[in-house]
Amino acid sequence: MGNTAETKGKEQTALKKPKATREAYGETLLELGRKRKDIVVLDADLSGSTKTGKFAKEFPDRFFNMGVAEQDMIGTAAGLSLTGKVPFASTFAVFETGRAWDQIRQTVCYSNTNVKLVATHGGITVGEDGASHQALEDIALMRVLPNMTVIVPADAAETSSVINAIADYKGPVYVRLGRSNVPHVMPEDYKFIIGKAFVFNTGKDANIIAAGIMVDIAKQAAEILKKEGIDTGVINMSTIKPLDENVLLSVAKKSKVIITAEEHSVIGGLGGAVCEFLSENCPTPVRRIGINDSFGCSGNSDDLLNLHELTADNIVKTVKSALKK
């Protein structure tokens, strides 16, 4: 089983101001840099946006701005790791995983180098920049690579915990962070462990397996469903690879339907991973909520989430329709 706790700590965290996961990344990276000399950071001309700029300012000798050259950044990061450094290479998710995919495949995954790919601006909530900058396929692109670990934190505190965990882990990791502020959803005493899902609660009728910003939205949906007498659980599956199969199996056995919720294409991401696993190990009706095989567009985050139906209302509607209620 993964971490389990009912919603303790909710009261404290709800009072804090929403914060972007990329902000937490910048702060944690700086703290890590102060503690560990082997941490080096690379960025491709977006250090202000990815927040690696904080590290760069204090540790200019251990920061490498690679210019607008993502492919070279990945290769250089791999080289640095081969001398025992722990490189964190950051840019927007769409460029990190798309532009440099073959470099990640060859020099990071196939060579199994200790490179940490921490990308920001994942998902539709990039907002106004539009489809060219909204990574909706990054999880699929990274998940398919052998040796890769894929993590999508739900809030700022979890991000901080994730960054510390991956600095201690040896091997390739992809972490997807967001641009926009997100509410605090994880309990105060929560500590992220690679491959362990966090179970807020389990439901007898439905269970929502969510990641990233959809964890908060899933919790809202579960509250609404509870009021209507539909017992719904919420699980934060922040490690998408390797999946927490034990948690998945145990909730699938108990529930009538599994809902996956992610700010990513319904193809190849969390929804894909859950379906692959359950179809072979515990066939269960699944409904995937995500981006339905389309590109995004410009707009503010909330409008985009509504347009693509990444909402509590849509989760509620989907659960009811699956349960024929």
């Binding site: 492919q71 070279d72 081969l82 001398t83």
Partner: peptide, 27 residues
């Protein structure tokens, strides 16, 4: 073998990274 190669155009980036790492260590 220092790094797996075969997909062309990638070795020089890796060589740069190794060289930078060695320099950081005064090696």
């Amino acid at each position: 073998v220092e790094v797996s190669t075969g997909s062309l155009g990638q070795g020089l980036s890796v060589a740069n990274g190794i060289a930078l790492g060695l320099r950081l260590d005064n090696n």
